[in-house]
């Protein structure tokens, strides 16, 4: 199933936060959606996940619309991880992960053995087994983020859209999560992640989509997208480049002060 955004425009409060975006996302790819704060990444994400109806344009999933497919079927095929989600009740971590099995459950049926196995796999993949029986309220921010990622993985869908899944994590877990997402893409799952960490984005993603001001200003292989001019235009930063263990390394280096530039 391919996800195709066709000339998508989403307005929030009259302002076009996503402005005529066209994208084709294919399974088996790890796509990083990058861009500065307010670029429209989350708004685009919500439209792609079918949570926000676009004001113009359409999103098609394998050629069909969400209305054709139905929300329930869609929920089994596409998992969405919210940027700032929290559990409102002191739920146990593994119960939260179990919520990811709801789309697979027939009404009134208890969880099946297959569900428990999927929850286990998801907890392992997100390295959250150690605190699976603790309530969410007793976990640290990073631990909670891993449980919520496990919740999205537990859906075992063909698509995973994750909004900043590594933002709250320490370096080891950031690398761990990126490796898992990369593996998932290799297995044929379509993975799209919003990232702020350009080093991780350029190292792990097969493809980067760079947004600024609601528009896509770069789309392609990391090296082709993260050019000096694109970084300057989108983020207002310079990039430092190196080669580490035979792999290219990119890191944001200096802020480009717009006033200084003008006065020079």
């Amino acid at each position: 199933m391919e996800i195709a955004a066709e000339n998508l425009t989403v307005r929030l409060g009259g302002v076009a936060r996503v402005d005529r975006v066209s994208l084709i996302l294919r399974p088996g790819e790890l796509v990083g959606l990058i861009g500065p704060n307010g670029a429209g990444k989350t708004t685009l994400f919500r439209a792609l996940a079918g949570l926000r109806e676009p004001d113009e344009g359409a999103v098609r999933y394998g050629g069909r619309t969400l209305a054709d497919i139905g929300r329930r079927t869609m929920a089994r095929r596409l998992a969405y991880l919210e940027q700032t989600s929290e559990a409102h009740w002191p739920l146990r971590a593994d119960h939260v992960v179990g919520l990811g099995r709801l789309p697979h459950r027939r009404f009134g049926r208890a969880a099946a053995a297959g569900d428990a196995a999927a929850v286990d796999r998801a907890l392992r993949a997100a390295d959250a087994c150690a605190f699976r029986e603790r309530p969410m309220s007793a976990l640290s921010g990073g631990e909670r983020a891993r449980v919520l990622l496990a919740r999205a993985l537990a859906v075992e869908s063909e698509w995973l859209l994750a909004d900043e899944p590594v933002a709250a994590l320490d370096p080891a877990h950031q690398l761990g999560v990126m490796e898992r997402l990369h593996e998932a893409a290799r297995r044929g799952i379509g993975v799209v992640v919003v990232l702020h960490d350009l080093t991780l984005a350029s190292r792990f993603c097969d493809r980067l989509v760079l947004m600024a001001g609601g528009r896509v200003i770069g789309d392609g292989a990391p090296a082709a997208v993260l050019t000096d001019s694109a970084a300057a235009a989108a983020y207002g930063v310079t990039l430092a480049r190196a080669v580490a263990h035979g792999e290219p390394l990119v890191a944001p280096w200096r802020r480009i002060d717009p006033h200084l530039e003008r006065n020079r």
Binding site: G50, E82, L99, G100, L102, V155
Partner: peptide, 23 residues
């Protein structure tokens, strides 16, 4: 009572509940 699973999903917020297939 039929809303039980939806209320479970809603404990992670409306977007997540919607993405889990609940109208």
């Amino acid at each position: 009572l039929v809303c039980g699973p939806a209320l479970d999903a809603l404990s992670l917020g409306e977007d997540t509940a919607t993405s889990l297939g609940f109208h």
